[in-house]
Simulated assay, not measured.
Amino acid sequence: MSADDCQDGAAGVYRSSPTGPRVMPPQAPQGGAPPPEASRRWVGGHPSQGLFRPSFWSVTIFALLLSGIGIRAYRDLSRPDAWDYWRETYVSASMTASVIPAIDIDGSGQSRRALAISGRIGPASAGWFRDQLDKAHLSNGDVVLLSSKGGSMDQAGIMGETIRARGLATAVGTADMSGRVRASSCASACVLVYAGGKPRYGIKGAMLGVHRFTWKEPIDNPVAEAQRMQGMVLGYMTDMGVSSAIVEAMSQTAEIRWLSQQQALAMNLVTTPVDPR
């Protein structure tokens, strides 16, 4: 029998190979294990028409991870300051600001640009304050006018350091757009902002109030925390050139203690008294 007869007799089962003898072409498997693709579980029939069905454990692990993230987020947002920070950052700031093109705060006849800020110092006030300074385009020697009952001590310290880094002066007061300055009040954490100025103008009739700092939330060791905070305030005030006597004045009362101008001068809290008449 010829090779052609053998090929024809087998109904074309064999075919010639370009590099060797005739070989059997690939055929579909008959029975046995299905191909790897068939072992997967698909939703919707054919693999091209459905979605891969995840295993029970993968779903469980994903749910646990998601719940862990949710719990941590809830704990963070459940803190009162977290909601205040979110509101101040994205909704409405707790302080307001206005730019005064020119004021003669010390009666020297030299006009200075000023930024007047007022309101409660909130948990996001430091970032807000930097933005306001950038928009106001204050330069070295310009003035920040303060009018506030206080608020966050940490934010106030950052605001004071920002004032010092930019070479700005501070005063407790307000001003209209004509540049006329009026005395105001600055208490509690606001005093830390005021201390950042160089010089620190003491407008006649302006009020500076200090008191012992307190906490909104309960803490484990109030005595240790009070000592830590007192040390921090002492270090800050010393860096700003204010006498350590101010820390003693703060620690003596939980209520606001308004300093006379003579007391503020003796502590070097006020460096330049002025009478804007």
Rank of each mutant, 00 (worst) to 15 (best):
P35R: 10
G173F: 01
N268T: 05
G150F: 00
V91Q: 04
S147N: 10
I69Y: 07
P26E: 02
F213C: 09
Q49L: 15
I158R: 14
A126Y: 02
Q7T: 03
I163S: 14
G209I: 04
V91C: 00
A114I: 10
M232H: 05
M250Y: 06
D8L: 14
Y14N: 03
S188Q: 06
R164W: 07
I100C: 03
Q263V: 04
G127K: 04
P29A: 13
R15W: 06
L265K: 11
V172G: 02
G202C: 10
S185M: 13
C6I: 14
R53M: 10
F62A: 15
L115H: 12
I246C: 01
R87Y: 12
A264W: 04
Q230T: 15
P25N: 05
R79N: 09
R166A: 10
E161Y: 05
Y90F: 08
A249T: 03
P80F: 10
T89V: 00
D220Q: 09
R182H: 15
G70H: 00
Q27I: 03
S125K: 10
I158M: 12
I69T: 05
S17L: 12
E248Y: 06
D142Q: 11
L51S: 13
G20Q: 10
S16P: 02
G141E: 05
P47Q: 15
L234I: 01
G70T: 14
K216P: 11
Q261H: 15
R164D: 15
L66F: 15
R180D: 14
V191D: 01
M267A: 09
C6F: 13
S139F: 06
R79F: 06
T272F: 11
A266G: 08
W215H: 13
R22L: 12
A33E: 06
V181E: 14
R257V: 10
V99E: 00
A254E: 15
D239E: 13
A97S: 07
I163F: 04
G109V: 06
T89R: 04
S184E: 09
D8Q: 14
D4V: 12
S139M: 04
R277T: 11
G50T: 12
P218T: 03
